[in-house]
Write a protein that binds this DNA or RNA. Structure first.
Lengths: 363, 363
DNA sequence: ACCGATACAGAAACCGTATCCCATGCTTCC
DNA sequence: GGAAGCATGGGATACGGTTTCTGTATCGGT
């Protein structure tokens, strides 16, 4: 009384349906489709016809269970809206597609709980790698948390890749793809200093964010190199967003702070700062110079176009994927977490129109 | 001589490992973990301890094969870099997460081949729905192609959702989530006309893109309503990007075209147009007014802030997911592709600072 | 103290595909 | 002409879970 399978097409067609209808065995259908076993031309034709008729596609889950399956990379991102990280995602996506890999984007919304949940989810999916994007908050707990992620993924045959944040300490099974954050900041600050600026409002970002720390450090090094005193009072921390840039400049102006340039931690922050200066009747770059960081499209779309630090986001994505693919292919001789696991890409200053030498020195 | 399973932890732990180590049956472990069957407190404790010790997570592929599994929505997007669609993706993501669903982003890069490949890929993955984002090119082939996608997904137990493009013709199993594109354009153009502008440069987008067509149509209706002649010569088509906005204005100026306002098809196009006007020594909005469309963050970050049409992108994402979830839950009485399958959200003009009445009439 | 009901645990049957192993027919070589 | 070899196709099994079905111990009621 229990018909296992109605002949109608309830649900999707299986390989068995195809086999039956073509009058061949399941094994043969599988072989025709994967194409890694000799089959006669006749059989191939018969099978392919039925496949087309039924519009059959193999079940990825079953395939993956049985050993086959497409490798998948998961990209975990704080905020899909951020332009910079969208470019990393694009790089990963592109490189993945090129190899026939699948990629998958998840957003954490800056919530550690959700980050944990997503990493576990990816572990369940058996992804080849989890790519974690964006600067990290340098809390004490962070290192432990990430180390646990790394080991946990490693044990499950997966791998953790950190993009745009500093490498983990100790012998942790993770790969890091980074850029010369501090160097970029150093070069950017030098550009300002060599133009003659001495009083610079610095908006590096959140104090606990690793990228902000690096950018601040690079800037400070430049000041030291130029023998210009670095006044802590002229550093304002805050989130990497437009509002922060606007408000920080607004407040600095209200306090009567004197500055001839703004060194923003991000192009978006720079945009906010620029707007606030204009609102106060100041011209950019005639009265105040501004520089950003990241070189997202916005930078060249502002008026004036923003001088900024170019970060090769898309390439970082490609490199991250390549690192994973290489490691997966060179399965034997799995090198222990040595130097090969930390890749650093270069940055450089892009000079546009937002910097001029200071006109009137007022201090 | 073939040990099936080495006792060491080669690869990831399976449910069998857990069962063995806890001294219970596989079935019991499964029940403890899924929690949809009564289990004694003692058993639960024993199992959970082993699960923690082994850092075990269930294999999503196996689970999905066996009937369980988390529903997954796939979001297909032309270009992950586009700000507008990132917001839709965010909306879908958020709503999906809320229900414990998984979501997945793929990019097509405007390539029909790749779009086809991705839809098939998603079909293989057995996703609950495929959400196609962004305006479509209105070629003849398009309707057929989408109809085929819809039927194909439907047959596989999945579902097609079109977001931000007009619904398919005929009885096609697909859901459309749309916004009042033409109405927004009508309101925006009216705003310009009521301010007194009569000579308006219109940059609607690609002529074949459905969104561009709608925006152009809305604008034209407004001109008609105001009794202002609509000159085809003042319409310039092109891609939705910064460069097009810049070049279109540059050319119009070079040709000696006289206009007091620019009606851009997109905020990004407006940004380009604004830059070109400045480069030509024109002030915005004193000499020329500009309006955009989409209301992405960029709009409020430009100087002057852009008057534009707000499109509820994030909400569209949420609505799209809700539509899929509802349909999936109300499994019985599956309504045939009636009116409930086309949802339209409202748009409205956001007035900022980029429009002023024309000062000198020169025609 | 006996019987039926109930609560829980285990064995086994799938889910859809890939692949190993074996059977078969036909070619090829001595 | 018969044996060995090759090219193919089919049957069975494994992958890691979920779920149904079955069995046993415990509990309450009379």
């Amino acid at each position: 009384m229990s018909q296992r399978k109605v002949s109608g097409d309830a649900g999707r067609a299986t390989i068995r349906d195809v086999a039956e209808r073509a009058g061949v065995s399941v094994a043969s259908v599988s072989r025709v489709l994967s194409g890694n076993y000799p089959v006669s031309e006749d059989l191939r034709r018969r099978v392919m016809k039925v496949v087309r008729d039924l519009d059959y596609v193999t079940n990825a889950h079953a395939r993956s269970l049985a050993g086959g399956g497409t490798p998948t990379v998961a990209i975990l991102i704080n905020n899909i809206t951020g332009a910079a990280f969208a470019h990393v995602a694009k790089g990963v996506e592109g490189a993945a597609t090129l190899r026939g890999w699948l990629s998958l984007v998840g957003t954490t919304g800056d919530d550690p709980e959700r980050e944990l949940a997503l990493v576990n989810l990816m572990r369940q999916q058996g992804v080849a790698a989890v790519v974690l994007l964006g600067g990290a908050y340098d809390y004490d707990e962070y290192q432990l948390r990430m180390a646990r992620f790394a080991r946990s993924l490693d044990a499950a045959g997966s791998h953790l890749v950190l993009v745009g944040r500093p490498p983990l300490e100790g012998d942790v099974p993770a790969t890091t793809v980074d850029y010369d954050n501090e160097g970029g900041a150093y070069a950017m600050a030098s550009h300002l200093l060599s133009a003659g600026h001495r009083r610079v409002l610095v908006l590096p970002g959140h104090a606990e964010l690793t990228t902000a720390q690096g950018r601040l450090k690079g800037a400070r090094r430049a000041f030291d190199a130029y023998g210009v005193p670095f006044e802590p009072d002229m550093v304002r921390h805050g989130p990497y967003d437009y509002e922060h840039g606007y408000e920080a400049v607004e407040e600095a102006l209200a306090e009567g702070m004197e500055f001839t340039a703004v060194l923003a931690g991000t192009d978006v922050v720079a945009a906010g700062a620029m707007q606030a200066l204009r609102a106060a009747g100041l011209r950019v770059p005639e009265d105040v110079s501004i520089v950003g960081y990241d070189d997202i499209p916005l930078a060249s779309q502002l008026t004036p176009q923003l001088t900024t630090v170019h970060v090769p986001y898309e390439e970082m994505g490609r490199v991250a994927l390549r690192a994973v693919a290489d490691r997966r292919e060179g399965g034997t001789g799995r090198r222990k977490g040595g130097d090969g696991d930390h890749l650093v890409l270069g940055t450089h200053v892009v000079v546009r129109n937002s910097v001029r030498p200071p006109t009137a020195r007022r201090d």
